[in-house]
Design a protein around this nucleic acid. Structure first.
Lengths: 217, 217
DNA sequence: AAAAGTCCGTTGCTTTTGCAACGGACTTTT
DNA sequence: AAAAGTCCGTTGCAAAAGCAACGGACTTTT
């Protein structure tokens, strides 16, 4: 797992020397495990002892609402984390996690953040800070999502969603969702989404093919 | 501020002895300040050095979206926190915070979480853990909000919203929003919301008056 | 006490959206 | 190669929702 280039993209491990990274893996008491496409990494209402870092493949996090609908909470690509909050709090996680494709996961424990082993080295403190920073960043990400979902028409939700991608990746980008997932992510209906995308393409606002988009205006 | 009973409701200070609580205030380098109704506690794009604890009154946190619409991110009552993520990350906060009523705020710095002063006492560690737990809990709260906003009809959003309150407070409760804020919180239109509430009352699902609700079915 | 302001329900109208169903393009399986 | 499966665009229709405007109840100001 040390050789996974993806690990560089994770703020937890970025810019660490090889020794420091090896230390970090023990600090978080890490274990890797691979999953086949469609496997469940976690089931609803089990405590999540560890949080995960996606090394390869991708996973999606879901919740069920009161009526039994599946709500997609997150799509996690290599370098991305999931479950940090539940793992830190040590509570039952009302989520389930599913491998979108064959995936390799680094499972890590936040135990030493909560109960540091003295003496606390500078690296220990740095790793702790990075973990907390990941928690804080997560709320910023969720703010972005709430911004999208707070808009009251599908058109404006779409514009907000695509603008966020465009801000980060430029005018041409690929999203990690198929239409159905994208509609769920936007809190909308798949056919309504297809219709709206068609309209926007007809109006010359953007072009797209499947999950690749190019913003024109 | 030591005498504010509200402080007991904050997970940061709950169940601390009087001395420990006094120590906590210095640990977080706390300062209090009062605001008049309508005052801004923070303006967009300024770094947030400290996070806030509402001692009395209430505040609301807003963001502006791309088109200049105001999105309500949070309503914070006595005992509630705001701005922890931005304060910890030390970044510009794209939010503004406004006093809904005359409000007394305890401003606290997360500095010693990031850079502990040795020797780190057991209480230091406890306070650090509590702060991180607040960050983690924040993401759970936001998950609740996303659950509401992900529903694709106003009726189901309302049911989800009200069910969350009913789960926490029982069948009869008062919400901290007027209609306009409630509609913004649900990502909807005020008149559409009024209309839907009327219908649900006519159907015998609930009764309400202003911001007080009673769930019947 | 009058005036101004706030909050909220109501309603008419138009647009948007959800929903269900169908079919085509493409991929995977057998 | 046929069959089955997946993904997505399209469309018709009915329901939902946005929008704008009005008026009543109530509160605050002057």
């Amino acid at each position: 797992m040390l050789t996974h280039p993806q690990i560089e993209h994770c703020p937890l491990f970025r810019d660490l020397s090889t020794e420091d990274r090896a230390y970090a893996l023990t600090y978080f008491d890490s274990k890797t495990r691979t999953y086949e496409k469609g496997d469940f990494l976690h089931q609803v209402s089990f405590p999540l002892q560890r949080f995960g870092l996606v090394l390869s493949g991708s996973v999606q996090v879901y919740m069920d609402d009161i009526d039994g609908h599946h709500i997609i909470m997150a799509h996690v690509e290599p370098g991305g984390l999931f479950g940090e909050s539940y793992a830190f709090l040590g509570i039952d996680a009302p989520i389930y996690i599913c491998a979108v494709s064959e995936a390799e996961i680094l499972w890590m424990s936040p135990h030493r953040i909560k109960a540091p082993v003295s003496p606390v080295s500078q690296l220990d403190q740095e790793l702790s800070n990075r973990f907390v920073a990941c928690l804080a960043s997560r709320t910023l990400q969720m703010n972005q999502r709430i911004q999208i979902l707070s808009r009251n028409t599908l058109r404006t939700k779409l514009i907000t969603f695509l603008s966020q991608y465009a801000t980060e990746k430029g005018d041409s980008f690929t999203i990690p969702f198929d239409r159905a997932s994208m509609a769920a992510y936007l809190g909308s209906d798949r056919s309504a989404l297809s219709r709206e995308l068609s309209r926007m393409q007809a109006e010359g606002i953007l072009t797209y093919h499947r999950n690749h988009f190019r913003i024109l205006k």
